[in-house]
Amino acid sequence: MDKIPILRMGAFLLVTIQVDLYDRLALNLETDLVNMVHKTGARGVLIDISAVSIVDSFMGRILGNIASMTRVLDAETVVVGMQPAVAITLIELGLSLSGVYTALDVERGMALLQTKLGSDDELTDDDADYTE
């Protein structure tokens, strides 16, 4: 059984999908990822789909679900490296993945997560000051 590796990079988790996702694999990824976020207390999840060339509505929904689930666990999800054809397909399917952050490549995705995390930290600091 294929398994998609989840790498930990500091406060973030990095997932690189290098095979075409079939339904079972996607569901397993969802479970693994949510467990991993819970276990490590990660603040951000970066999913690199630059090698994915085929996408269906199920896969689009899974991406959306992962984003919502990680948000509940206080982690932001960034999907990076989407191929033009994949983007067009998702739009034609009516899935605009509005809850998911996107970036062009892993580097920019990391930068985006860092700024999100940075602003979050400031926010919590402010809150802390306020309560004090």
């Binding site: 999907v79 990076v80 490296g81 989407m82 033009p84 994949v86 983007a87 067009i88 998702l90 739009i91 034609e92 605009s96 993945l97 996107t102 970036a103 062009l104 490549d105 920019r108 995705g109």
Partner: peptide, 12 residues
């Protein structure tokens, strides 16, 4: 709107 959404999905 479709074009804008697709661009957003790409991360731009």
């Amino acid at each position: 709107i479709k074009t804008v959404s697709a661009t957003r999905l790409m991360g731009a």
